[in-house]
């Protein structure tokens, strides 16, 4: 009696069908790779019209972010993400999606409490912990350089 209750987590796991990991990884690989390839093409294009390497990289980021925000606003990015999973989450376009989607969703709640407060509701942690980890590493580097 009550065997299910005792090992409930394991039991639930055993009755929950899983989606095919290999298939999902393949989709993520294809779309994620394609976005990166597209980025590389943009970099090369900017370089061939005479921009230096660093500026070409900057233009590429701005353009990728712009396109991702447009696709988010048109409702295409979430459809692509359903197929691609990590393939659309990991590239910088996923970051752009995570900033623009709450901005669009919460506009009804106003400029300050809606868009303003919520715009970082998903991307905020990325910025916080990115800054924090680079700060810690920087501190160690600074201590190293002083000694």
């Amino acid at each position: 009696m009550d065997d299910i209750k005792k090992n409930y987590d394991d039991y639930v796991k055993s009755v929950t069908p899983t989606t095919s990991l290999a298939k999902n990884m393949w989709h993520a690989f294809l779309i994620g790779g394609a976005i990166c390839l597209f980025g590389q093409i943009l970099i090369t294009l900017f370089e061939t019209i005479g921009t230096d390497e660093e500026t070409a990289g900057a233009y590429e980021i701005i353009l990728l972010v712009f396109l991702a925000v447009m696709l988010t606003g048109l409702g295409i990015y979430p459809k692509l993400a359903k197929y691609a999973g990590a393939g659309t989450l990991v590239p910088i376009t996923g970051f752009a999606n995570s900033v623009s989607s709450p901005a669009i969703e919460f506009q009804k709640e106003g400029q300050i409490f809606g868009v303003g407060c919520r715009i970082f509701s998903i991307a905020g942690p990325v910025i916080l912990f990115g800054i924090l980890s680079s700060w810690v590493l920087g501190l160690l580097y600074w201590i190293g350089s002083v000694i």
């Binding site: 929950t16 069908p17 899983t18 989606t19 999902n24 988010t72 606003g73 409702g75 990015y77 979430p78 692509l80 993400a81 359903k82 999973g85 659309t88 989450l89 996923g94 999606n97 995570s98 623009s100 989607s101 709450p102 669009i104 969703e105 919460f106 998903i122």
Partner: peptide, 12 residues
């Protein structure tokens, strides 16, 4: 999540 956020739903 916001509706335009790209995420995958699990089978469950």
């Amino acid at each position: 999540f916001p509706l335009d956020y790209g995420s995958q739903r699990k089978f469950s």
